[in-house]
Design a protein around this nucleic acid. Structure first.
Length: 294
DNA sequence: AACTCCCCCAACCGCACAGGG
DNA sequence: CCCCTGTGCGGTTGGGGGAGT
């Protein structure tokens, strides 16, 4: 797969004379990676332009920094996002918007680039398919009422697997701002909430039917908090994933073929939002929300 | 087998900001 | 102040490769 990209190199003629060298662009070679890792191991990171020169890399400092932070740094996690991580991204995006680096701070080992790519390829793609704006209330409503419960169910289903347990720490300590969260008796009909009943841990499939047929306004954070309070009554100050193991059994089978959607256990750490899931979801969304397909 | 289409993600780009001289 | 350099961030691109025909 390694490709000689040297033909892509461009002269830095706009720069001063001493750095008038052919700068390489495109994919990094193994040798370049070795040079970069070796240099940083011995000298540390930072001062990227100088680092690039001293390491003997015909790359810009920016390119070196990006390669290190997004790929070579030892604590960078490889592989697909876990359901917990996906859930966290969705929640944090509600709260922070396209602040990818901020979101990445809550997912150790994940880079802003990776999260951004996830959002664009998985989330925005679905919005495009539905022909609705990914920032619209309708789409956010769909995520809150359909996608997030699905992720939670997925998490619950596999809550004993080592991979999940290892990633639980990722979510511990994450708090939504509770200051403006609605009380549990919030009867706001505009949100996905319903009366809370702690003895019934997981209230699906009613979650779906409780979604409003009309979406009168964008749900605020308080609505989101209410939603989680009502349906996922673990510690309401945090998303402590330890509690997911206590969740009861959700059942979406009456509306969607869960087995088909989820696939085998190996997909746990993969793309839990499979294409088949979404092809069903599109239709289901319009059916449940009363929105007209454009 | 050959071709096209499309998805994914690594990498690039432009801009903003901070800090030092 | 202004300029320069380094750094960080969000948006965008483009190529590899898998899927479909």
């Amino acid at each position: 797969m390694e490709t000689d990209m040297s033909f892509l190199s461009k002269s830095s003629s706009s720069s001063s004379s001493d750095d008038d060298i052919e700068l390489r662009r495109g994919p990094w070679t193994i040798e370049e990676d070795k040079l970069l890792v070796h240099y940083i191991t011995n000298h540390g990171e930072g001062r990227w332009n100088m680092l690039a020169k001293h390491a003997g890399l015909k790359r810009t400092g920016k390119s070196c920094r990006l390669r290190w932070l997004n790929y070579l740094k030892p604590d960078v996690k490889r592989g697909n996002l876990t359901p917990q991580e996906q859930l966290l991204i969705l929640e944090l995006h509600f709260k922070l918007g396209n602040r990818w680096s901020k979101i990445a701070q809550y997912l150790p080992g994940r880079t802003d680039n990776e999260i951004k790519n996830y959002w664009r390829t998985k989330v925005q793609k679905q919005a495009r398919n539905l022909k609705i704006d990914s920032n619209s209330a309708a789409f956010q409503q769909m995520i809150r009422c359909l996608w997030i419960p699905r992720l939670l169910q997925k998490i619950q289903s596999f809550s004993v697997t080592p991979s999940i347990q290892s990633s639980q720490s990722t979510l511990q300590g994450f708090n939504l701002d509770k200051n403006n969260s609605s009380s549990s008796n919030d009867d706001n009909s505009n949100s996905c909430t319903s009366s809370s009943n702690s003895s019934r841990i997981y209230k699906s499939p009613n979650i779906i039917s409780e979604c409003p047929k009309i979406l009168p306004r964008e749900m605020g954070e308080s609505d989101l908090n209410s939603f989680f309070k009502a349906h996922f009554p673990f510690d309401d100050n945090s998303y402590d994933m330890d509690n997911f193991g206590q969740l009861g059994t959700g059942n979406f089978n009456d509306v969607m073929d869960y087995d088909q959607m989820s696939g085998d256990q190996n997909k746990l750490n993969g793309d839990v939002i499979s294409d088949s899931f979404w092809s069903n979801m599109d239709e289901f969304f319009y059916q449940k929300t009363g929105y007209e397909q454009l």
